[in-house]
Design a protein around this nucleic acid. Structure first.
Lengths: 111, 111
DNA sequence: TCCATATTTCAATTACTCATGAAGTGTTGA
DNA sequence: TCAACACTTCATGAGTAATTGAAATATGGA
């Protein structure tokens, strides 16, 4: 994970709709969710969804698999972890208090 | 750290110049760095810098303290930690593999 | 007081992001 | 074969972000 990759991941996540998509996909694991179902969950148009999905996929945060008519999207967990790792590394390497705080804050899942 | 705050932090960090500013300030701790010095380090104009600093300050990621003619900026470590905590929480709460990966990736400081 | 320094603000310009709806592609089943 | 479905692409336009240089503010020292 270099800075360029981290930046594109951050840009991808810096949007309410896309952050919601990630939150929706993460707990579904490898199975993922069909685009149409994501659109239904979020209440947005297919075209708007497609725009955001391709942004996330471009950033490497999600992956897609075509399955007959549907396209299933799943979160790329290792990549998400790598982004967090980059931030941790970059921001907290020399400063453990950032690190410590991020652990104590991560108390409960809310997805 | 609610989603709105996380989003504004992510937007603030989703920019090369601003990510560099954060990386520059984090290891300086509470002492921080004067705006002019940051501009020199990054090789950008005072006006461009001021624009980015105010975006970071607005997002709560850095804080400023005026000291005679100079303005010193420092990273807000707890806030940075809270952003990472939000991502960890939000993306990995139900999925420990994201979490695990982010730990193993955080091998060495590079600031 | 006046000039130099440090920083911010402003206005103008350019570039990017996002939403929308219409058209296009590919697949399934009647 | 044809209509319906699932999704993507495209064109347009609105809104927002970023860059630039000039002007403004505020402080310190000669």
């Amino acid at each position: 994970m270099d800075q360029q990759q981290a930046l594109s991941a951050l840009s991808a996540m810096a949007n309410a709709t896309r952050l919601e998509i990630v939150r929706l996909l993460v707990p579904r694991g490898n199975e993922g969710l069909a685009a149409g179902d994501i659109a239904t969950y979020l209440g947005i148009s297919a075209s708007a969804l497609s725009f955001h999905l391709s942004a996330l996929e471009q950033a490497g945060l999600i992956a897609s698999k075509k399955c007959s008519r549907q396209v299933f999207y799943r979160a790329d967990h290792p990549r998400l972890g790598a982004v967090i790792g980059y931030l941790l590394n970059d921001c907290c390497g020399a400063h453990p208090e950032v690190c410590t705080r991020s652990q104590t804050d991560a108390k409960a899942p809310n997805v």
